[in-house]
């Protein structure tokens, strides 16, 4: 079976993630969209790993997950502080720095 459908799927997921980042205001949702992008990559990695017949891709997928988890920790901390000070999780509210 060709790897193409999997890659196409991953590309679709990646695109959805991108669009999510661009369209959603809530920081948490934006962040989730980023996670979606990472997971789309994971899908691609695993697919290629299978296609190439080595494990590097799968290992990489695990690493990505770990890193994503670490990102969550940091990201949520930052989003929390923002939310606490502004009572809003909208990324558009944080726009004091400009021009």
């Amino acid at each position: 079976m060709s790897a193409t459908p999997f890659i196409v799927l991953s590309a679709i997921l990646f695109t959805i993630g991108c669009l999510g980042v661009l369209t959603r205001r809530n920081a948490i949702v934006v962040f989730m969209s980023v996670e979606l992008m990472l997971n789309a990559s994971n899908l691609a990695l695993v697919t290629f790993s299978r296609a190439n017949g080595n494990l590097e891709g799968q290992i990489a997928a695990f690493f990505v997950m770990v890193v994503a988890a670490a990102e969550v920790v940091v990201g949520l901390a930052i989003i929390m502080t923002i939310f606490r000070t502004r009572r809003s999780a909208s990324v558009d509210d944080a726009s004091l720095l400009k021009y």
Binding site: L22, T23, V30, V91, D92, A94, S95, K98, Y99
Partner: peptide, 9 residues
């Protein structure tokens, strides 16, 4: 510089 509008999106 107006393009640098402060919105992260």
């Amino acid at each position: 510089r107006l393009a640098q509008n402060g919105f992260v999106r």
